[in-house]
Amino acid sequence: MTEISLNILDVAQNSISAGAKLIEISVIADIKKDILTVEIKDNGCGMDDEKLKNVVDPFFTTRTTRKIGLGIPFFKLAAENTGGSFNITSQLGLGTTVTAVFGLSHIDRMPLGDINFTIHSLITLNPSIDFFYLYKIDERCFTLDTREFREILGDIPFNSPEVSAYINDYLNENKQVVDSGTVI
């Protein structure tokens, strides 16, 4: 995994496996505090305390309700290697929240990478799941909410070429407004 956005894609797959109907992803850079916070929150089946204790163990995996193997340990290590932190909270039946904090300017921090394609593929490949995405740098931010899209589109699917292209443009144009093309 060479990009934070690939880790986000990977962690979101766990939310999908957990039967989430809504997945909220946020990428927040605070330049003054020099931190980059990434959060993936779902309303899937959640985990009990026993399972939660084990998810950061690379040799623990459960293939009955959720698949957890190397993905979470990778993500945790990537954050901690930059002087950041990693946290995962979960409640059975309610959902799971994964939070990773990175040292923004730390030399070992992997780049955010193609976050827009991660978000775009999650939305178009999982048309029955709703996504809320927040991209924020200091005081500037934009959000994408598929529930709003759905309200406008009715039964027109997200993976139809026109809508897919719109989502792509929406992400690219708004990201540009927020970060002016700065590579995070």
Partner: peptide, 21 residues
């Protein structure tokens, strides 16, 4: 910022192509 109005335009356009969909 890209607005949701464009999405409305897409819907208008696509509603006439229901067969295709």
């Amino acid at each position: 910022m890209k607005s949701l109005d464009e999405l409305k335009a897409i819907r208008e356009k696509m509603q006439s192509q229901i067969d295709l969909r």
